[in-house]
């Protein structure tokens, strides 16, 4: 049986328009449908979708399909398509906008949860005191067990340190000993550094949920902390 055709008596590409309003240089319309993105994308074929088809659905106003496809969570917004696209179209950015259009309750639960936790302090949700305790505990253990590292440092909230170091929440939560090698490296290099007891998590899952205000909030908090400590450099560990 033949499928019903798509009737375009009036073309209303509302989602496209919304994205264009939010991101003026997004260039969705520039697409040449050359397929370069689709040929380079590891997510091509997942959810019967690829970046080119995704753009095409947007252009042709197939908004339902766009808003409902879970492909937006298979696209990692890695921008490899944009990197080589002859028109420089940023599918990742478009996916970000569409993720944000999803009502929160319809988003992947764990992803949203990571962001919600992040907004409180860090993505795993451990209390800040626990982080401080774990750091000091691990440090103490190294100093005791490894005599050559008896001077090892892991300063927290050290005002005026030259470098501020963030810490992915995974280590203090599940594999604290993974923090040690970096401390040792910094020690040997003679670096004056510090952690913070607040907003110390280097990850930021609010980048992925699609709500810019959440993302902005967490970055702002991190920035405030670093400036309060008066550090000249903010080191990201990944």
């Amino acid at each position: 049986m033949e499928k019903e055709s798509v009737d375009l008596k009036t073309l209303r590409a509302r989602v496209k328009k919304q994205i264009e309003d939010a991101v003026p240089d997004v260039r969705i319309d520039y697409c040449l449908t050359c397929g370069l993105c689709a040929s380079g994308c590891p997510a091509t074929g997942l959810e019967d979708m690829d970046p080119r088809k995704f753009l095409r659905l947007l252009v042709l106003g197939q908004d339902e399909k766009i808003l409902n496809t879970n492909w937006i969570y298979s696209c990692t917004m890695c921008q490899r398509c944009k990197y080589a696209c002859p028109m420089g179209i940023d599918v990742g950015r478009i996916v970000y906008e569409i993720r944000g259009m999803r009502p929160k309750e319809k988003r992947p639960k764990n992803l949203q949860r990571s962001c919600d936790l992040q907004k409180k302090s860090n993505s795993t949700g451990i209390p800040n005191e626990d982080f401080v305790w774990v750091v000091n505990d691990v440090l103490e253990e190294v100093r005791q067990n490894e005599p050559q590292w008896k001077d090892l440092q892991a300063p927290i909230d050290k005002k005026g340190a030259k470098y501020y170091l963030n810490q992915n929440a995974k280590e203090p939560t599940v594999e604290p000993e993974e923090m040690v090698p970096l401390w040792k490296i910094l020690h040997v290099a003679g670096i004056d550094w510090t952690y913070s007891s607040k907003w110390w998590d280097g990850a930021n899952y609010c980048l992925f949920t699609g709500d810019p205000e959440d993302w902005e909030y967490t970055v702002r908090k991190q920035a405030e902390v670093v400036d309060e400590l008066g550090c000249r450099y903010y080191i990201n560990t990944e």
Binding site: A203, L207, E216, D227, Y234, N236
Partner: peptide, 30 residues
């Protein structure tokens, strides 16, 4: 991750006094 902070500072024009760097750059430099 690196981009979240880098792009966050840029896109939301968040005022800051520090310079944002990667540990990889520093390893190599050191």
């Amino acid at each position: 991750m690196f981009y979240a902070t880098l792009e966050g500072l840029r896109r939301f024009k968040i005022p800051h006094k520090f310079e944002f760097v990667s540990i990889i750059t520093l390893y190599a430099q050191w």
